[in-house]
Amino acid sequence: MIRCEKLAKIYPGPVAALVDLDLTIPAGQFLLVCGHSGAGKTTLFRLIAGLETPTHGSVSVNEHDVARLGRGGLPYYRRRFGLVLSDAPLLPQRTVAENVALPLLIAGVPRRQAFERVALALERVGLAGRAHELPPTLSGGEQQRAAIARAVVHRPSVVIADEPTAQLDRDNAEEVVRLLRAFHAAGVTMIIATHDEALFASVAQRRIVLANGRLVEDTW
């Protein structure tokens, strides 16, 4: 369970990206995060994933405060997540397989075992034949599917995806939703930001709306 209490992030300026947000996300939930650009969705995701420190308030996972983890503990905390974020793109100079293998290699999984799991993950997202190509040679939909494969290959307990269907045509977008639904069915908590709520209507269990850094709507 992820709990945000009075969570706030104020950037120099000052710009209040997130203001006193209280949110509890039970394990296994499929949560849709909606709101206009600049509403605070990405900041919320970065704070939950431990990529940013809150200005005040706290994020805790299973009652453990993330702020108390310190520099040494944060990397291990981040490994619980599968990220599909714009600031964690596929690395263009590494092959698709090498990109997808990163979370496993970072976690210390032996190389051979890691690439066996990568092959399975790529097969699952329909990219088995593109494993040895560089990301820039893939289409937008294929890149997004590769990013999802990287997000789930290490079997995280939570997947955070920021606009995973943005700039994809309908068929590719539906394919991405189908994949996310399949991983959710396996017990993974899903936190997805999207502008296309209709696309996720059949799978989302909860929908929150952010506006100007505040939680303005919470629908179960």
Binding site: A49, L51, R71, G72, P75, Y76, Y77, R78, R79, L83, L85, D87, A88, P89, L91, Q93, L102, P103, I106, A107, R150
Partner: peptide, 16 residues
């Protein structure tokens, strides 16, 4: 820098 930022997001330690 970009690669390091991605590795950090994926849970890499400074040592790695």
């Amino acid at each position: 820098a970009q690669e390091i930022s991605v590795l950090r997001a994926l849970g890499a330690t400074d040592g790695y």
